[in-house]
Amino acid sequence: MTDSEGNSYLVYEYAENGSLSDWLHTHKDLQPSLSWKQRVQIAHNIADAINYLHNYANPPYIHKNLKSSNILLDGSFRAKISNFRLARSMDDDEGQLQLTRRVVGTHGYMPPEYIENGVIAPKLDVFAFGVIMLELLSGREAAGQEGKDRGDLLSSAINQVLDGDGVKDKFKGFIDSAMRNEYPLDLAFSMAELARRCVAYDLNSRPAMYEVLMMLSGILSSSLDWDSSDELNDSQSMRSGR
């Protein structure tokens, strides 16, 4: 909107539940944990929005700054993408790949081709979204505090979890303990595999956003069937069965 003095403002819907980062990291010990159903719904909301930016906006846009602190949650925990300050349009004459010398972003969410060569492409958002999915699954931050090499990145950690021996036990240890094992293991594993594809080192190995949305739609549908009863009753029955 523009006021009477010609100043422009971007007006957002009020997000009464704050940012996704607050729920997963900052205030996680001071509020109830997000349920499995809420986490998958949030991931689906984000994927739907990115797919719109990439394939339906005119002109299409790359957000370039996806991270959990830029995901806002409304009163029903529906996710809204915010902070379009770094967004870049994909004009038809520029194609799907652009280059920049000014690499700006948040450690842990930027893909290697952008950090190393300044490549801007839709797969940049796909990578960042994969990291957000891993945050939703694990409750961990995108990057650790030990340094800035790839070893402290959540996008690298998932390979160690899903490769080698003892995958099932490693994966259970990776999942956010705040969910108290109240999630469908097979669907969580499918989401982790999808996230790993999204954070592949080679951008050509990452799926397009429409494919990510399609796969998440299936995971969400199955999650709703799995969690068709009241979550509180289900949680209490699980506790009494231990």
Rank of each mutant, 00 (worst) to 15 (best):
T2S: 10
D3M: 04
S4L: 08
S4N: 11
E5L: 13
N7D: 13
S8C: 12
L10H: 00
L10I: 09
V11D: 10
V11K: 01
E13T: 09
E13K: 06
Y14K: 00
A15W: 08
S21I: 00
D22A: 09
W23V: 07
W23L: 15
K28I: 04
D29V: 04
L34F: 02
K37T: 09
Q38V: 04
V40M: 05
Q41L: 02
I42C: 06
H44K: 08
H44Q: 13
H44C: 07
Y52N: 10
Y52A: 05
N55M: 04
S68L: 03
S68M: 03
S69P: 10
L73P: 03
D74W: 01
R78T: 15
I81D: 05
F84P: 04
F84S: 14
A87K: 02
S89Q: 12
D91A: 13
G95P: 02
L99P: 06
T100C: 04
R101Q: 14
V104W: 02
G105V: 01
T106H: 07
T106A: 12
H107Y: 15
G108S: 10
P112D: 07
P112A: 00
E116L: 14
E116N: 12
G118A: 08
A121E: 09
K123R: 11
L124E: 06
F127T: 01
F127E: 09
F129A: 00
F129C: 02
L136M: 11
L137S: 05
S138A: 05
G139N: 08
G144N: 15
Q145E: 15
G147F: 07
L153P: 06
S155G: 15
I158V: 01
V161T: 15
L162M: 12
D163E: 15
G166V: 04
G166W: 00
V167T: 06
K168H: 09
F171W: 11
K172C: 11
S177D: 14
A178R: 14
M179S: 12
R180Y: 11
D186L: 04
D186H: 08
A188G: 15
M191L: 11
M191G: 08
L194S: 09
L194H: 11
A195Q: 01
R197P: 06
R197W: 01
R197D: 11
C198R: 06
Y201P: 08
P207M: 04
M209I: 08
Y210R: 13
Y210T: 15
E211V: 11
V212I: 01
L213W: 05
L213C: 14
M214K: 11
M215S: 14
L216P: 09
L216C: 13
L216R: 03
S217E: 07
G218S: 14
L220A: 13
L224C: 12
D227C: 10
D227G: 00
S228G: 03
S229K: 02
D230A: 08
L232Y: 12
L232K: 07
N233M: 08
S237C: 08
R239L: 14
G241A: 09
R242V: 10
